[in-house]
Design a protein around this nucleic acid. Structure first.
Lengths: 208, 208
DNA sequence: TGTATTATGGACTGATCATTCTATAATCGA
DNA sequence: TCGATTATAGAATGATCAGTCCATAATACA
């Protein structure tokens, strides 16, 4: 062995992740990365292999944190619908509170690089798939508890939630308006309700 | 007067727009822009004022085309729900057909620049607002035709459609899978089944 | 203590970036 | 036809980019 590292790789990755998240891939320079991590170029390249590799490590880290966050939110002792509503509500809180309108790191990378950067596209797709699977698993569980109709298409529902949340976060990045985001969420949840219970029969009836 | 321009500003803008749309702002260089437009740097700067100004002109152009496209789609002699379904269906067709997974230009700019570039953020927000208003107007009309309950919140519905379509296009950029996108759309369209008609009373009933 | 090994700081590289500038070309009104 | 005006091509500019390299520092082990 020889000279030991002077930095914590985990902390470095966390800071690099936030830099990419806030500014995007192209707009984050190596000087930026050295600045936020405190590392020199040599150390960054020796330990992580370059800007692109650092992006992918950052994405992987973000994915893990996101999955953990979603899993925790969906594991709360609530009906799944309420757990999802609370999860999105907290998302909105963070969007509205600011200060950094960073959106979803995965969504940002999708917008910036998907279709032009094969490896990143695959990584983004895998991340979205894992998030979808996390929602789906929670929906399956809720289904077994009787909260969702047995015949409901939980896979589609999970895909819908992923896309809906991406849309919500993207719109929230351009316009972090609580009322607007809450309106969107309410209708999303109406869709959820309707899709989760496809066997309800509608009967028109005048309101009292 | 003096020497006349050798190019059609409209055609130049159209090409510049496609360049920004496909690659994003930062990743599109002036050499790229000169290349696709056929103009020299001098002409670009003299006529449009620089890269950033060209982006905003491109965004304005995209917005107009988008509004026109949506207006046309929603004006078809169909129930609004079917018109929207057809509109999104054609969107999916284009996403799946490829070849350039470009997503929505406005959404791309939101993801890349919103929160970091004040002028662009405002422009993106205004574009989203106009699109929302276009949907809302069509929903109001449909409401007057009795397709949507009088008390339905068409403003929220329009906001939801904007966000949902953004999410759909973003996910489609990373994973242009028809089945997935169709599933998402089908659940999105459930918003017309209940949120649009809040006065329907639901009665549980076993399926036969 | 000395040597092998790894980490680090920072200069260096060549490419590319957006923008400006200069020289030339093309048209107008007179 | 001539001078004023505008358009164009392309060179020049200085900043910044990602990535490399080398000298030096710090440790482990012998």
């Amino acid at each position: 062995m020889a000279r030991p590292r002077e930095f914590d790789a985990d902390a470095v990755l966390e800071r690099a992740m936030h830099a990419f998240w806030a500014k995007g891939y192209k707009a984050t320079s190596l000087d930026d990365l050295c600045g936020v991590t405190g590392l020199s170029r040599s150390s960054l390249y020796a330990s992580f292999g370059g800007k692109r590799a650092l992006l992918h490590r950052s994405l992987a880290r973000y994915e893990e944190q996101g999955i953990a966050r979603i899993t925790a939110a969906l594991s709360r002792p609530l009906p799944i619908r309420e757990a999802i509503a609370a999860f999105i509500g907290e998302l909105i809180d963070r969007i509205v509170a600011g200060p950094g309108r960073t959106g979803c790191f995965i969504g940002n990378c999708a917008a910036e690089l998907a279709g032009r950067d094969r490896a990143t596209t695959i990584r983004v797709r895998r991340s979205l798939d894992r998030i979808q699977a996390t929602f789906r698993d929670a929906l399956v569980l809720a289904q077994s508890r009787g909260e969702i109709a047995a015949a409901a298409d939980v896979d589609s529902l999970a895909h819908f939630l992923v896309a809906g949340i991406q849309g919500l976060r993207l719109v929230g990045k351009a316009d972090p308006d609580r009322a607007r985001l809450t309106d969107i969420t309410n209708i999303m949840l109406h869709c959820f309700d309707r899709a989760a219970e496809p066997h309800l029969i509608l009967h028109r009836k005048e309101e009292t």
